[in-house]
Design a protein around this nucleic acid. Structure first.
Lengths: 188, 188
DNA sequence: TCCAATCCTGAACACAGTGTTCGGTTGCGG
DNA sequence: CCGCAACCGAACACTGTGTTCAGGATTGGA
């Protein structure tokens, strides 16, 4: 199996790491495939044997992050499946624990593609809990609203270098997105 | 003065129009400068005499829209400067009256750059009215939240081909962003 | 230990798109 | 009608992309 060959693992890992480092230094769109190759010390043809292009590599890095987050959500969220602010809270915590990657992927210097994926992911994450919260409004629109707001908040936090706690951001998010005496932590 | 030469006006107008048309057909990033040139029937060197690159042209088109919107906001908003939902309402109305341009600039096929500008513009538009609304939370964060949510809603509306009214969208926006018995039109 | 399969290398290549230059032409405004 | 400014378009150098292929290196399993 392809996965078990150490060379493949090494190559992929090196490319991922090089991409992240270079995005943090120069920003995604100022990057050349050749730049990544030089940094990762990988041959040109090898790269194209693994990824279709620069964007595919970025997506692969994002998918790693996505899978990890999804795992945590699946593990920690189902005990409280109806709180619509919970997914965002988990997202903020996950970002806080993986600042480097989030800065590269979702920060100012990251690519637009990742933002689209992140937005879509967040929308799906929120769609369930939101269905019950606002039965009077069309769910798609509500999900769109909250996904945009949540990702916007996250981006702001990242670009400000993660000030305060994840809990701080989550409290603000809850106060803005779901005001009222509902939540247990509605004050700062 | 440069502005008064008919040739300049004609060239700029043709380039703007060609860009919009082509974005609607193929999407911004699938476009070549040469494509725009062919469609506008303008020489290559002429283009670079007017704009630094493809992105500068896009920005110029956006600035036209921005100026028009700003004019309307200045004309119609100051009578109600404290309602934080009013700027978004005006934005939705303006988009509805300029569907073609908004689809090209801010829709799915538009460029990422415009989105950043639109986001910034919206944030500035909201910063004033929001300052009084939520004195307990940091203004920047609140503005970020609402700018993201508003632009997200607008993009959704555009990509769905402007279903319903501007008023419909504004009502949803108000209900989600500023709930409570405050606004005059809080129901659908 | 060996070996066949698989991966990696690196240079060469064709290609697409960019942004600039410049001599010559056209159209504008005064 | 004239002088100036804008436009043209072809040519050019340049950057980056994605592919190909023959030869060398590593791997996992027998």
């Amino acid at each position: 199996m392809a996965d078990q060959d150490r060379r493949v693992r090494r190559t992929r890992r090196a490319l991922h790491e090089a991409l992240i480092a270079l995005v943090l230094e120069r920003g995604y769109d100022r990057l050349t495939v050749q730049d990544v190759l030089d940094r990762a010390d990988v041959g040109r043809s090898t790269f194209y044997a693994h990824y279709r292009d620069k964007e595919a590599l970025l997506t692969a890095v994002f998918d790693d992050m996505r899978a990890q987050l999804q795992g945590e959500v699946d593990a920690r969220a189902p005990d409280d499946p109806l709180d619509p602010a919970r997914p965002a809270e988990l997202l903020f915590e996950h970002a806080h624990r993986n600042q480097r990657v989030y800065r590269a992927l979702c920060g100012r210097r990251g690519g637009e593609v990742v933002l689209r994926h992140l937005h879509g992911m967040t929308r799906e994450l929120l769609l369930g809990p939101l269905r019950t919260r606002r039965p009077d409004l069309p769910v798609e629109v509500v999900a769109e609203f909250h996904a945009s707001a949540t990702v916007g908040l996250l981006r702001w936090w990242i670009d400000q270098d993660f000030p305060h706690d994840p809990a701080w951001l989550a409290a603000i998010h809850r106060a803005l997105a779901f005001p009222g005496p509902a939540g247990p932590s509605d004050r700062l």
